[in-house]
Design a protein around this nucleic acid. Structure first.
Length: 290
DNA sequence: ACCCAGGCGGGCG
DNA sequence: CGCCCGCATGGG
């Protein structure tokens, strides 16, 4: 059992982060419940909010130790993030104040780098509901059947499997034109690029490395760095974030991607990733500028 | 029918 | 560099 303030399991897992694409969220009698599969097990997290704090419990099947599962949950959901400090840094204008009020407890999750990479390659020019279904079909078709505590579970598709898959087979999962990107990125990750290396690189160096991969551009690279490596300087600029920044901070004037990056870095410094997630979610909620 | 979605690569000026 | 285009698919 973990007790923390400023945590919402629902907002965190339904806000367009990787868990939104490959996990199952439900509510059971006022308790929020999320089940997801990792490389070594199936994890179920329950959160019950009362007052300003959440009581979080977890269970699992698979090869976890007691300290291992606790560490997994704390790390995955960002439970060590000092939200009071983060909110203090972000809350310098009326819009952010409202966003923080609407989205209290939304955290940046930290996910497996390869899973994050595939999710956001699939995400491009796509919508969340369909990303979820495509990831589900890729897992069903290309995941390995593994047995966890006597139960058959499909693992997340590996880069090796996708690297050698037929393009037409990938496309049958509904990927559309992204089939080439998926295969190329998978191939790069099995020869030449070790995603584990990026963890030790600074943000800009790691981003350059990702941008070298066919199918990964500016926005997807930032998503991978934010949600796969928790580099909080990352600021993914998608249509929602671009609209929100232009509307709120530039009086509706159009700005280039580069100008928006420069603005975010100056205004929120090392926490622009958190600002980004609040802009994204609040912008979608309010359909700001649309 | 039409518009849009957590964009990217390629081709052009 | 910046800009514009096509790209597959499905939901509102």
């Amino acid at each position: 059992m973990i007790s923390v303030r400023n945590f919402s399991l629902g907002l965190t897992s339904l806000s367009g982060q990787p868990l939104n694409f490959c996990s199952d969220y439900r509510v059971e009698c006022r308790c929020e419940v999320l089940t997801y599969t990792t490389a070594i097990g199936v994890v179920t997290v329950r959160a019950l909010r009362s007052g300003g704090s959440s009581r979080i419990s977890y269970s699992y099947e698979g090869k976890y130790t007691e300290s291992g599962i606790r560490h997994e949950v704390i790390r995955r959901f960002g439970l060590r993030d000092d939200m009071e400090r983060i909110y203090a840094v972000l809350n310098t204008d009326r819009y952010m104040d409202a966003a923080i009020g609407n989205l209290n407890g939304l955290r940046i999750t930290e996910n497996d780098p390869w899973e994050t990479t595939l999710c956001f390659v699939v995400s491009q020019f796509n919508n969340i509901k369909r990303i979820r279904r495509i990831i589900g079909r890729l897992t069903e078709r290309f995941g390995e059947e593994v047995e966890l505590a006597g139960r058959a579970v499909k693992s997340f598709p590996s880069p090796e499997t996708l690297a050698s898959a037929e393009l037409s087979e990938i496309r049958k999962c509904g990927t559309g034109f992204r089939d080439r990107y998926i295969k190329k990125v998978a191939q790069a990750c099995t020869s030449g690029v070790d995603l584990a290396d990026l963890a030790d690189m600074d943000y800009h160096t790691a981003k350059e490395r990702l941008l070298g991969l066919y199918g990964i551009g500016d926005k997807v690279a930032d998503c991978i760095l934010l949600f796969g490596y928790k580099k909080l300087e990352a600021f993914p600029v998608d249509v929602w974030v671009k609209r929100a920044v232009e509307t709120v901070y530039f009086n509706g004037r159009k700005k280039s991607i580069g100008e928006i990056h420069a603005f975010a870095e100056r205004r929120w410094e090392g926490l622009s990733g958190y600002a980004n997630q609040y802009l994204f979610c609040n912008g979608r909620m309010n359909k700001i500028g649309a």
